[in-house]
C-alpha cells in the first residue's frame, strides 16, 4: 500500500479509513489551538451535534445511492417539526392533554416525512421528472406550508417528559446518540443484507439493466425517497427536542452539511456507491470542523468557508478514486 505511491494514497484517502485518518489528523492539528476539544464534555458535545446530521446524511444516502438527490430536507424538517409541535404544545396543541399525545405525535411526524418522500419518489419514477426539480419544489412547498400553518411563529411549550427523554442519557450515553447509532445499524443491515438493498445498488449502477432484470424501478425509487423523508422527519424530532421548539423556517444549510457528510464518507453522487461507516465519520468530521472553528472564535462565515473547502477536497478524492479504481475516466 505504501510502496504503491500516490495512487494508493489517493485510494486509501477516499475509503472509510481515509475519512477516519482525516478526522484524526484534523483533531491532532487543531488540538494545540483549542485543547478543550479533547475534554469529555466537548467530545460528547461533538457527537451529539453530529447525531441529527448523521440521521439526515443516512437518509440522503438512499437518494444518492440510486443516482438521485433529495433537496427537500429543510422543508420536511420544518413541516414535520411544526406538525409535531402543533399536536403537542401545551399552548393550545391538538393533543395537549392526551396521554397518547407523545407517541401519536412522533408517529405522525415520521409518517408525514415518509409519505412526502414516497410521493416525491413517485413523481421521479412515474412522471420521469428530475429528482432535483421534484425535491426542490418539495422543499419550497413544505417550507412555505410550515410558515403558513404557524404564521411564522416558533412553537414552544413542548411536553417536558419528551424533552427530558430525548435530551437525557441512557446508560450514561445521550439518547440522541443511541437513536443515531440504531439508525446507522438499521441502514447498514438494510443495504448489505436485504434484497431491497441489492436492488437500490443495482438502480444506482444502471437503471436500465435493473429494469431488464425485473426490478420494479418505481417501487425501489419510492422506497429510497420515502426512507430519505422518514430520516428527515426523525431529524426533525431530534432538532425540535434539542431546541425545545419547532422553527417554521429551518436553516437550508443543513441540506448541504448532509450531502457533504455523505460525500466525505465516500458516497458517489453518480449513484451505486455508499458506505454507512463512511457516512458516520463524514458526519462526525463535518461537525468537528464546525465545532472546533467555533471554539477558535471564528465567525459563522469562516466556518462555512472551511466546510466548503473540506467538501470540495472530499469530492476531488472521490473523482480521483473513480479514476484510479475504474481505470477509466
Amino acid at each position: 500500500m505504501i510502496a504503491g505511491g500516490p495512487r494508493s494514497v489517493v485510494r486509501f484517502a477516499a475509503t472509510e479509513l481515509g475519512v477516519v485518518a482525516l478526522a484524526i489528523v484534523y483533531v491532532l492539528a487543531i488540538l494545540p489551538f483549542c485543547p478543550e476539544l479533547a475534554t469529555r464534555d466537548q467530545a460528547f458535545a461533538a457527537l451529539v451535534n453530529a447525531a441529527p446530521l448523521l440521521v439526515l446524511a443516512l437518509g440522503q444516502a438512499f437518494a444518492l445511492l440510486i443516482g438521485g438527490i433529495d433537496l427537500s430536507v429543510s422543508g420536511v424538517i420544518s413541516l414535520a417539526g411544526v406538525v409535531g409541535a402543533m399536536l403537542l404544545t401545551s399552548d393550545g396543541g391538538v393533543l395537549a392533554d392526551s396521554s397518547l399525545a407523545i407517541p401519536v405525535a412522533l408517529l405522525a411526524m415520521l409518517l408525514m416525512g415518509g409519505v412526502v418522500g414516497v410521493a416525491q419518489g413517485a413523481a421521479v419514477a412515474y412522471w420521469e421528472l428530475p429528482a432535483f426539480i421534484v425535491t426542490m419544489c418539495g422543499m419550497m412547498a413544505m417550507g412555505g406550508a410550515a410558515v403558513w400553518l404557524t404564521g411564522g411563529a416558533r412553537l414552544g411549550s413542548l411536553p417536558l417528559p419528551l424533552l427530558e427523554t430525548v435530551q437525557g442519557d441512557w446508560l450514561r450515553v445521550p439518547v440522541i446518540l443511541w437513536v443515531a447509532t440504531a439508525l446507522a445499524i438499521v441502514c447498514y443491515l438494510l443495504l448489505q443484507h436485504t434484497v431491497l438493498g441489492k436492488h437500490l445498488y443495482a438502480l444506482g449502477h444502471n437503471a436500465r439493466a435493473a429494469r431488464v432484470a425485473g426490478i420494479s424501478l418505481g417501487r425501489v425509487t419510492c422506497f429510497a425517497y420515502g426512507a430519505s423523508g422518514t430520516c428527515s422527519a426523525l431529524a426533525a424530532i431530534l432538532y425540535t427536542c434539542r431546541t425545545e421548539s419547532a422553527t417554521p423556517s429551518f436553516a437550508r444549510e443543513i441540506l448541504l452539511d448532509a450531502i457533504g457528510a455523505a460525500v466525505i464518507g465516500g458516497t458517489s453522487l453518480s449513484g451505486g456507491r455508499v458506505s454507512v461507516m463512511g457516512i458516520v465519520f463524514g458526519a462526525l468530521f463535518i461537525t468537528l470542523v464546525g465545532n472546533s472553528l467555533t471554539l477558535l472564535n471564528l465567525d459563522y462565515w469562516h466556518v462555512l468557508m472551511a466546510k466548503g473547502g473540506v467538501i470540495l477536497v472530499a469530492a476531488l478524492l472521490d473523482a480521483a478514486r473513480r479514476g484510479v479504481a475504474g481505470g477509466r475516466a
Partner: peptide, 12 residues
Amino acid sequence: DDGLLLNASVDD
C-alpha cells in the same frame, strides 16, 4: 446499457 452493472462485481 441493458445488461451489465459495469462497476459492480461479477457475482453481483
